[in-house]
């Protein structure tokens, strides 16, 4: 079972190079990370997956963007969440793996219809730790509330969750133990956190039925 940080933004988007972030992630207990942006080399130590983020205003734009060569090369395709109709539509796009930025969406923007479709199609919802770590006051309360709502939908419909640090620096990366305690703030249990940390592995290498070849 791989323990994956579902998105980090290495240099030049952040202040730490991919190799340094990989080194830190390994020390923090992760065995793979999803790096968003250009990956020129594959540092040794832990597995690096390529991630692409689509920020689109409409469902049609998402369908157009998933055909971009950069997105097609990616191991994990993220789409930023939008309004209720956008989210319902985007979870049924084949190439989309994860819906992210859910803390910034309106309440109920990811509803039971989107949850059921996500569960059927194996599309994950990302829990970003950045708002919990970096925000203060009402902004953080709102993010925790959104995550609690998502968690209750996940318990009911069973769609995958991923957990990301959204780190742009090694200072924003957190250890697996810290991830557990931060996720406990909105009611996630240790087992659910372990499951969510292993979700990226299941998205990129889905379990297929056994084929009898002879």
């Amino acid at each position: 079972m791989k323990i994956t940080d579902a998105s980090v933004y290495p240099y030049p988007a952040g202040d730490s190079t991919l190799a340094r972030m990989a080194l830190e992630a390994a020390e923090l207990g992760f065995d793979s990370i999803v790096a968003v942006g250009e990956i020129r080399s594959q540092p040794s130590g832990i597995k690096i997956l390529r991630g692409a983020v689509i920020n689109a205003a409409s469902h049609k734009e998402v369908i157009k963007r998933v055909r971009d060569p950069a997105v097609r090369r990616a191991d994990v395709v993220f789409v930023n969440a939008g309004d209720i109709s956008f989210n319902r539509a985007v979870v049924s796009v084949n190439e989309v793996n994860v819906v992210r930025n859910i803390h910034a969406a309106r309440r109920n923007a990811f509803d039971h219809v989107a949850a059921r479709t996500a569960a059927d199609r194996g599309v994950a919802v990302d829990i970003s730790l950045a708002p919990i770590i970096q925000f203060r006051g009402t902004k953080r309360q709102k993010a925790l509330q959104r995550y609690a709502d998502i968690l209750s939908l996940q318990r009911r419909y069973g769609f995958p969750l991923t957990i990301s640090s959204d780190a742009r620096s090694i200072m924003e990366q957190r250890s697996v133990r810290e991830v557990r305690s931060l996720c406990a703030l909105f009611g996630m249990t240790g087992v659910e956190v372990s499951d969510a940390l292993a979700s990226v592995g299941r998205l990129t290498e889905p379990e297929l039925p056994v084929k009898v070849v002879a």
Binding site: Y11, D15, S16, T17, A19, R20, L23, P43, S169
Partner: peptide, 24 residues
Amino acid sequence: PRQKVDLVEKGIKHQKSLFFTEAD
């Protein structure tokens, strides 16, 4: 140790830092 390299901008206050490895 472990090939880590920290770059601290030359200056007096609020210097920018970059976190590289030896290979980078």
